[in-house]
Amino acid sequence: MTLPLENILFYGVLCLYFLAMILYFLFVALKKEALGKGAIWVQILGLVLHTAAIVLRGIVAGRLPLTNQYEFATAFAWGLCLVSLVFILRFNFPILGAFAAPITFLIIGYAALQSKEIRALMPALQSNWLGFHVSTAIIAYGAFGVSFVLGIIFLLREKMKASGFLDQHIPTREKLDMLSYRSVALGLLFLTFTIVTGAIWAERAWGSYWSWDPKETWSLVTWLVYAAYLHLRIRRGWQGRSAAIFAVVGFVCVIFTYIGVNTLLPGVHSYK
């Protein structure tokens, strides 16, 4: 079953995210404050409609809509949009949007390529633990997405020439590093929730809480990379550049765990 209204909302959201991205780009290119504000409003509107689309799907399906590739992809985009918006508003940092919006758009674009059909769940997927597992993953991935963007901005800032506009809108390198740390902290905490709730679910569904399935292994890799990031930051002189590189590498692991593992590596996540 597919939902026409959800479809309309979904493509509306896709357009709004695209528009937000363009406005953010123009804001940076033309250095016009109003464009930055406009981008934020469009992003907020997109997020509201996106939430409505996800809730609608959940109501019609009678379950948390977080169980297949489409549902997770759209929720991933939602998580990244939400966390980036929180950082943009909380730290008055619209330039973050110019980097986060294209990633959000790419992920929702990936969702658009997946089947939107609502299917009944196979028994292994009927679990509240799965709900916790996936919803915490969305926040973790969103937070890691933001730390990736902050890492990129940090590395670019080193190369940028000073300009009034950029100095006004891009925090100091020290603050960028701190923001990246805050987002990795949020991400790592939620990734730990994700792994623990996933292990509890796996134990109940498959009788084994950890079986070194590639998806599990890669979430551990991601976890280890971010743990290394945290320890790097504690070392004197390793904050900043090296930490930013680790934040970027960490998100590459996140994306690989999400897409690469399913397509490139053999998995055992099926009921039989």
């Binding site: 070194w212 590639p214 292994t217 890669w218 551990l220 890799v221 280890l224 990379v225 743990a227 290394a228 320890h231 790097l232 504690i234 070392r235 593992v261 590596l265 053999p266």
Partner: peptide, 24 residues
């Protein structure tokens, strides 16, 4: 601390390599 970072990174690298090899 350097040792801890090295351990974490090496463990991550080893898991990456192992994930590309079908086990057993």
């Amino acid at each position: 601390m350097g040792f801890a970072i090295t351990l974490l990174t090496v463990l991550a690298a080893v898991c990456v390599v192992a994930s590309f090899v079908t086990q057993g």
